[in-house]
Amino acid sequence: MAGYNIPDTDYMVSGHVGCPGCGATIAMKFALKAMGEKTMVVIPACCWGVIAGPYPQSSLKVPILQTAFATAGATASGLRAALDMKGDSETTVMAWAGDGGTFDIGIQALSGAVERNEDFIYVCYDNEAYMNTGVQRSSATPFGSRTTTTPGKGWKKNRKKNMVEILAAHRIPYAATASIAYPEDMIRKFDKARRMKGGTRFIHVFATCPTGWRIPSEMSVKIARLAVQSNVFPLYEVENGVKYTINVEGSRPVADYFKIQGRFKHLTDEDFEKIQNMVDKDWELLLRKTSYFDRLT
């Protein structure tokens, strides 16, 4: 595409039933631009299970295997094994699961597969709650968020689980974060992951959800960008669990990101200060890991 280093061909098609402004659909569009035709997608229960098309329709031009909520890691392992038996080493298996299906119910199957260093790409598109069933909190829901299971004063007081660190601790070849607001960076990472055959590659994609986050649909990309600009969702890569690379360094206050979202509208300046503190500490920790491992390796 003009001005950008982005492949022109799309493997996602129009007419899907994602909500207007759905970040998860933008995520799939970018991912497949990099992955190309020789890809099989494994999708457990999640919004994308619906967006992929009600039978007999499909919104992707590549094969999709729909599977049970908890099983993306196991199904992807099995699919890989089947392809290997057929002698097809060219096709890449890409598991594509939500945050509920990754952080919570799917973590066992995922950890098992990753410990075996299965040869696939596992993508978690993170919209920070169980959106498909009506915005229930997950362990990816951030501190401060209201969901239907953390309503009113009961807004979520626990931190978001750091999934990339969990995956990096498995010492897989590649774990990275990506954002729909940074298409070139995201497509580069998928392309890199595609080429790194032979082990598990994990990509954690930040995908806004206008419906669940109570944000205007047109702000979908802008808010994803703000998450990076404020270091709430840092863009970085970890190779072999130790080699850290930070891609973008943010400098905006977290309040810029939080204040424009309905799910956080109850938060006070005091809360923002607390969150800023948490984000600063996490960022600091990331920087330290980056330089610590740099010295070690």
Partner: peptide, 29 residues
């Protein structure tokens, strides 16, 4: 406009960008 459209509803023909109203959901991105 074409890169970010979640509906793949922005088309490019002979250098002209157009909105395919069959699919544009009006998200405004």
């Amino acid at each position: 406009c074409r890169i970010f459209c979640p509906e793949i509803a922005v088309t490019l023909h002979a250098g002209e960008r157009q909105i395919d109203l069959d699919y544009c959901k009006g998200c405004g991105i």
